[in-house]
Amino acid sequence: MTSTSIETPLIGDLQSMTGNDDGPLAAVRVGVVTFPGSLDDRDAMRAIRLAGGSAVELWHGDHDLQEVDAVIIPGGFSYGDYLRAGAISRFAPLMEQITQAATGGADALPVLGICNGFQILTEAHLLPGSMIKNEHLHFLCRDQRLRVENADTHWTGEYWAGEEVVIPLKNQDGQFVADNRTLDELEGEGRVVFRYVGGNPNGSRRNIAGISNTAGNVVGLMPHPEHAVEAGFGPDSSARGEVGLRGGTDGLGIFTSVLRKLVG
């Protein structure tokens, strides 16, 4: 079954989620994978569209990446987080295609995993470490300040190293853990991409909020940049100064980063 036959009846037609303008970015096709239990897939597609690119629906059960230029694995509770967050999703047919395409150096397929997507990427061994339950044991939803530690990945080129952003965080299993050797390696290779600032919300080792693979094409992070892309529907604050009511759009750069990187 091809994913074009998937009709998720929605408010706003997903099929027509192409870029706002006809500029070069609109030609970039970014796929968003829907698993059973994915929640923020439409939000990720909206973010791509607002960044100027074209969003493409991908279905976990397909074997075809539809020639997309990049892939986002969105947040949610795929398979209800049963067994372990991401543990079942990593076996989806499409994940095999993604894992293959994302491996092989800097020209490989750019992949972004957000929250549950990050969990899936660690389960698929595209990224090291794992996420366990927040140390306070609660689901936590809050506007979180992060520091962009590495602005050279495929997904962070629009920021500068050391820049701070405010992005919503919302999860139950968000505590990033890895053994010390892995953590040292991540730090040493500059693969810590985002770090929590102003208080660690979940006990993550070394305040790590997001990491990348060696080539920088695969990035995973727990906070949700797709919820800080549209003025009026984002956080109440921005690291860049005062913004209007729910006016924070600090997350948009993640999506424009990959579009610009792909346009060259």
């Binding site: 609660h138 939803c141 529907f233």
Partner: peptide, 12 residues
Amino acid sequence: DQFDRYVQGNTA
């Protein structure tokens, strides 16, 4: 704070 108020991207 234990509830998701952001999902769907339409919360004004």
